[in-house]
């Protein structure tokens, strides 16, 4: 078990290293290969009006003329130990973890990300609670009443849930519940949970439900399929033969086994969402990481784009690591692997 944990942690760290290299390569090596010069890079940091000389100077100062490996090393060092950017006009300070410094917003990228994270974390975790509970419960009931009216209705709705895009369901629910009935927030506002939990929930409820609907549908289908499979297993028959009440057979023996693959998928989904729920955040005008990413791309703010990419990668890798560890707790056979 201990070796399993150590192996997974080493694996996760290696994975992050690889992701950082790939990210770096995409933003710095590939453009080079496509013909971009050091000055082209520097030009992005000072705006279009700068003279060639200023740009050339800046390219030197920011190190765009150094070998790629040195640049990568400097970038990683910034994440670990912080960095300083000498633009000639002054020194911009970017403390660790320095995921780059935006010369457009004149802010370390990390500060911006920290501002947005509470929104995205609130959105993702609230939605996750709803979709896991609703999805799994629906899936279990559907499986136990396979072919019933409930099953067919639930699976019909689930199909809609999987196929309808968030901006559609989001806008429809905004029109109905916020503008029509006036019982939910119209979007665009966020209150930290630490300030006012009730208002936090009031503002988030519609985005939660909209996002949860998308995922709950998939989880319901997955749970249903998993339950149908496990309830046919021999060990379920054994559990019944022992004289266990049916409720115990379903939850302790059936659901326990059916949940394992769902835990895996959940880790991936949740990790990815923490890197920004782009569509939901845009639909409800929430200033989360996803919206930040979109803005960064529109502004062509390279350090910001790289920062978001690394953050998302970090969440996905971390979520995967947690899932791997959870998996070993849930399924003892995994510990041998």
């Amino acid at each position: 078990m201990v070796t399993y944990i150590i192996r997974r942690i080493i694996g996760a760290v290696l994975m992050l290293a690889v992701v950082s290299m790939v990210t770096f390569a995409i933003f710095f090596v590939v453009p080079r290969a496509a013909g971009a010069t050091a000055d082209d890079f520097a030009a992005r940091y000072v705006g279009k009006s700068a003279t060639e000389e200023t740009v050339g100077n800046l390219a030197d100062r920011l190190g765009f003329n150094d070998p790629v490996v040195v640049q990568y090393g400097r970038w990683v060092k910034g994440i670990v130990a912080g960095a300083e950017y000498d633009t000639g006009a002054g020194v911009e300070n970017c403390p660790a973890p320095c995921f780059g410094y935006s010369f457009i917003s004149h802010q370390p990228v990390w500060n911006d990300l920290l501002d947005r994270l509470p929104v995205t974390v609130s959105l993702a975790s609230g939605a996750a609670v709803i979709w896991v509970l609703a999805g799994v419960a629906t899936g279990v009931l559907s499986a136990l009443r396979k072919g019933s009216v409930f099953d067919r209705a639930a699976m019909g709705i689930a199909l809609a849930g999987v196929s309808l895009p968030v901006f559609f369901t989001g806008i429809v629910s905004l029109v109905i519940f916020s503008y029509g009935m006036g019982i939910t927030a119209p979007g665009g506002s966020f209150t930290p949970i630490t300030e006012n939990p009730a208002e936090w929930a009031y503002n988030m409820i519609l985005p939660w439900i909209t996002l949860a609907f998308l995922y709950a549908a998939g989880y319901a289908r997955l749970t249903r399929a998993g339950m149908l499979e496990t309830m046919g297993e021999d060990y379920i028959r054994t559990a019944r033969a022992k004289g266990l009440p049916e409720r115990t057979v379903i939850t302790k023996h059936g659901l326990r086994a059916a949940l394992t693959p769902i835990v895996t998928i959940f880790g991936l989904d949740f990790g990815l969402l923490l890197g920004g729920a782009v569509l939901t955040e845009s639909t409800f005008s929430l200033n989360g990481v996803g919206k930040f990413a979109i803005t960064a791309i529109l502004k062509n703010d390279l350090p910001q784009i790289m920062g978001v990419t690394m953050l998302t990668a970090f969440f996905v890798v971390a979520a995967n690591l947690i899932v791997d560890l959870l998996y070993a707790v849930v399924d003892p056979r995994v510990r041998l692997a």
Partner: peptide, 30 residues
Amino acid sequence: LRGKKMAMIFQDPLSAMHPFYTVGAQIMEA
């Protein structure tokens, strides 16, 4: 009555026992 008055042993003990619980836990449960 099942488990107490009448009990059953199945053909393939690998698939008939729950893979996630210890042997002891499964006997204790019964």
